[in-house]
Simulated assay, not measured.
Amino acid sequence: MKVKNIQKVTGPMPIGDPFIMGAYHYDKYPEGNGKFGPKASLDGKNLGNDFDSNAEWRMYHGKEIPGFPFHPHRGFEIITIAEEGYADHFDSKGSKGRYGEGDVQLMSAGSGVLHGEMFPLIHEDKENPLRLFQIWLNLPASSKMTEPQYKMLWHEKIPVTKVGDEAKVKVILGEYNGVKSIEALPYSWAKDPNHHVGVALIDLAPNASYTLNAVSDTMNRFLFFYDGKGVVSIEDYSLQPNYIADLEGGEEIIIKNGSERAKLLILEGEPINEPVAAYGPFVMNTKEELDQSFAEYRRTQFGGWPWGHEEIDVVHPKDAGRFASYNFGKIIDNPNL
C-alpha cells in the first residue's frame, strides 16, 4: 500500500524517525504597534503560553512580541522554514540574524545551545502574516555532543526545480529531479546522501501533477498539504488542506492536484534506528543522558545568554534587514554576499 495513513494536523505533525517533531505556524498578525508587537488588544491571550489553535494569531511564549524568548536545546537539528513573515534569531554561541520571506535556517543544537526566535511585526501600515515550519531532525548518538552549528539558506540561493509550468519544488535538503540542495550542516543526518534525507516545498498549479520517485523501502516519507483550498489526490486517496500523509518510500508516488493551487511540504529520510529519550527541549538516547543534560544546563546555562534583555522579548532594529552574523559579529552573512 503506497499510502499508509492520512490524518489531520491539529498540533505537532505526526511524523517519525529520523524526524522528532514538526510544527506548522500560520498566524494572521495585524499591523505592528511600533514596538514590534501587535496593534491589537492582548486581552484574553494566555501570555507566555499562547497556543490557542482557534485564534487567528498567537503570542506563543512572547509577552510583548510574538515568538519564543531564549530557551535551551540539545541533541538534534532544527530546520526553520520562514515562508512568510520574519524571525529574529539570537543564540548563546554569538550568532544572530533576521530572516524571512522564504529563507531557511539550519541550526544544530549539538551539545547545547540557548537560542531565541521572535517574530517581529515590522509593518505598521499593513498586516504581518507569518507562515513558518520548524522541523526537528534527530542527531545520531555519535553526533549529539558535537559543537552547535548555525547556517542560513537565503531564499535567493535555495535551488528550485520545475516540471514545466505545473510544479515547482524548492529543494531545502536532499535531491529532487536531479537538483541538489545546498550542503547540509557538518554533523547532520542529512550530510550522508545514503540517508536519503529530503525536505522540500512543492507548489502545484491547478490540475498539475508531480511524481515522487521510489527511493528506499526503509525510508520514511511524509507529505503535508499546508496551503490551498482544493483537494490533492495521492493514488486513490484524497488529501485535504491541513492533512498529512504517511507514504511508502520505496514506491513511486503520483500526486495530482485539483482545480486550486496547492502547496505541500515533503519530509523524508532513512530512520536512525536508535533509542530516543526526549523531554522538552532535549533529545537524547537514554533517560540518564536526559538527566545529565538538565543537570548540566542548570549548572552552566550552556554558556549563558550574552544579549541582555532577559526579561523582555529581544529583537533587531526595524531597519536591520535580512542578515546573519556569527562569532559575535566577526563573520557577516547576508543575501547579497
Rank of each mutant, 00 (worst) to 15 (best):
N49W: 12
W189I: 05
I312Y: 04
A82M: 14
Y210G: 07
N46E: 14
G97Y: 02
G34A: 08
H316S: 13
I234F: 12
G116A: 15
F224C: 02
A262V: 11
L185H: 00
P66E: 02
K4G: 02
A23P: 00
D52T: 07
H155V: 09
A184S: 14
D319P: 01
E101C: 10
N285Q: 04
L106I: 06
E83Y: 06
G75R: 03
L139N: 06
L201R: 01
H316Y: 09
P317A: 08
V3M: 05
K162V: 14
L265C: 09
G228W: 04
K170D: 08
Y86W: 10
F133M: 06
A55I: 02
S188D: 10
G75H: 04
D165F: 09
N273L: 14
L132A: 12
E117Q: 06
Y243P: 00
K318T: 13
F302E: 04
M59E: 02
G62E: 07
P14C: 05
Y60P: 09
M21A: 11
A324F: 12
Q7I: 07
T286R: 11
K45L: 09
F302I: 02
P275G: 15
S259C: 11
L239A: 10
K93Y: 03
H196R: 14
K126T: 04
I331R: 03
G97E: 03
A167W: 07
S143W: 01
G48L: 13
L267I: 07
W305V: 09
N336T: 08
P206D: 14
A184P: 02
P186K: 14
L173G: 00
T10I: 15
S95K: 04
N220A: 11
L201H: 01
W307A: 06
G280Y: 15
Y99I: 07
A245H: 02
N177W: 05
H196Y: 15
W305T: 11
I135A: 02
